[in-house]
Design a protein around this nucleic acid. Structure first.
Lengths: 197, 197
DNA sequence: TTGATTACATACCAACCAGTATGTATAATT
DNA sequence: AATTATACATACTGGTTGGTATGTAATCAA
């Protein structure tokens, strides 16, 4: 009964929304309870404290979202550069207006919590490393099958791509502009082209 | 007496430090007062409320730092690509360990405050636009003197460069690693090379 | 000299917060 | 049938927060 419980899941998803909007520290438990129509007793039945709730949001929702959107599709692509360009394109189109306004949940939490809570930092770092290693793995596969230049350092490239994606969403969030997001994505695909042999 | 007052300046700088570490919402006025060795009466004498203090930090400290570190040096460079590569290099070296751990003050505030306070958002946006326009101006100057490819869209490129810089510092902050920062900067300079004619 | 303004200092307050204590209906176990 | 554990629900608390009310010493203007 620890996992895949509907009440627990409702709490998790409401917590994700509240944290995505307000940040973790400013996220109010009472507000999460109102959102999910659940009581404080239920919350503290499933999570020992606010921090544990935050950790669960990172490990169960955010990590899963990265896997599902960025990594699994890329595993099936034969040309990683084509695959990445496609994903960037899809990302720009599939993000809702609210998603543009709220930015990347991983990066938001990252900037807020990394310096003040090492438990958060390590869990967020795990997700970032999963992401970077997934991209690096795809780039190396491309180097093997000849779709990616053999001279590049796959992990460094992957890191830069993830960083740029995060940065693009930052600027778009501040500018409240899908155009900024697309202009950034456009230029990132130009960089990707330079990785071809 | 409204400006360049030593007490006011002390408050501003302590506020900057506290906000840089904790974020704006979590920044405690009492903690700022302890840092600056000033009393609440003094703080509320110079700033009507916490928000106004935050605005002043953005407009007087953060904006000025962007101008001084990124824009003024670039004005004097004859080749903007060389200039940018030099600045990225200097940035990587001149950042203190603490600076790496705390990340970019502008981007931190941006992600925290943009969705929940439009006054903050607009002031931060002004700084980002100053930054992007400064880079774009330099790139256009390069297009004129033949050091930059004429086919690129200067503003879009500038936006991408700023976004990537922000993203690099995000990942480095989370990883607590200067290596990540340098690897990202390295790849950003590779992108910059592709802007040459 | 005197009245007003500036530049703080101290004490206090209402609101909100995460967390707890206690109670209870239901379901599982023995 | 009796006992125990689960899954909540409600009421409360101590600590912190941004902000205010009030007071005062020093400076400036008339």
């Amino acid at each position: 009964m620890i996992k895949s419980n509907p009440t627990r899941q409702k709490i998790l998803e409401s917590a994700f929304q509240e944290i995505h909007l307000q940040g973790f520290q400013a996220a109010s438990l009472n507000s999460i309870l109102t959102r999910s129509d659940v009581t404080k007793g239920a919350l503290y039945h499933y999570f020992p404290d606010k921090q544990a709730l935050g950790f669960a949001v990172v490990e169960e929702l955010i990590k899963e979202a990265v896997l599902q959107f960025w990594l699994r599709p890329l595993e099936e692509a034969s040309d990683p550069i084509d695959g990445l360009k496609g994903l960037i394109n899809v990302a720009g189109k599939s993000l809702s207006d609210e998603d543009v306004l709220l930015g990347c949940p991983l990066n938001n939490l990252c900037l807020e919590m990394s310096p003040i809570d090492d438990g958060f930092r390590q869990r967020l770092k795990q997700v970032y490393e999963l992401w970077r290693e997934g991209f690096a793995w795809a780039l190396r596969a491309g180097q093997t099958n000849g779709t990616v230049k053999s001279t590049i350092n796959a992990m460094d490239c992957a890191t830069f791509i993830v960083a740029s994606l995060a940065g693009c969403r930052s600027l778009a969030k501040n500018a409240q502009s899908r155009d900024v997001l697309n202009a950034c994505g456009q230029n990132l695909t130009l960089y990707l082209d330079t990785l071809q042999p």
